[in-house]
Amino acid sequence: MVESKFSNRRIFVKKIVLASISIPLLNSFSFLNKKTRSRKITILHTNDMHSHIDSFPKNHSKHPGMGGMRRVASLVKKIRNEEKNVVLIDAGDIFQGTPYFNKYKGSLELKIMSSMGYIASTMGNHDFDNGINGFKEVLHHANFPFICSNYEFSDSEMTKKTRKFLVKEVDGIKIGFFGLGIELEGLVGKDYYGETKYLDPLDTSNYWTNYLKNKEKCDLVICISHLGYEYESDKISDLKLARLSKNIDVIIGGHTHTFLEKPKLIKNTENKNVIVNQAGWGALALGRIDLEFSKKNEKSNSFSVNDISKKNYAKI
């Protein structure tokens, strides 16, 4: 009796030892590694939807019967059924563009986006179109945060209701978000943005990426930007920010209504890849970036961007 109890314990201990050895051992077999330790995050993103809840009018000269948040919503629903870790992001300019905004002041857009399950957005210049007060009045319809890292609101309520950064863990991947808005002077009437201070996007970016990567130890840092994709002048843009950055993995952009074929890869100051993307405007396109993660020691991040074979999303 005593003997068998002892041997039971001995077997148990042996098991523990074996298990503990096997973890680092398994780790060295990369083919097993991929199966057991890899993770996938599916970023879906929109920008500059400009109150296009319904599709464009059937007699529209450029986009007849296309687009609309209602269609984007059914696309997102379909992808959520196929993918476990969907992260839905918007890059601003939700407001202004259809009578829905004129009549409901943006409340309907925010209700719809809440129902679609957005994780975060940032403020575009048109989101100031009813002034800070107009924005504040409808903000409670959004169940997701607005991340405005480089706007310093004089309005204390706005400071409380917007965020400087966001950290979310999705299936073991720690994701850090920060948001950059465009310079408001000259673009938005002074009476609309009031005493809101515009902070330098690059300084702001350096501060928050350092915080998110090194203090919060995020695996993935996403910049939600309404700076614009690229300019002929040396004005700060997503591409310029990517080149001058450190620790940003993905920039989800807006403002310039840019339709890209696929995301752009830019080398940052440390020669690491930054993924920059934008999805047109008017809810005419939905951007999708699937990121495969694996535990790795090395510091470099080398990957290319592959096209997902053109799936037929029709009639879903």
């Binding site: 059914s74 993307n277 939905l286 970036i289 991040n301 999303y313 879903i316």
Partner: peptide, 21 residues
């Protein structure tokens, strides 16, 4: 730590054939 090892992407056109929620 987790590192990006592979990226797949597409820009999906929101065309007429997609149902409206």
């Amino acid at each position: 730590s987790y590192k990006i090892v592979d990226v797949n992407s597409s820009i999906i056109d929101v065309d007429k054939n997609i149902l409206e929620e």
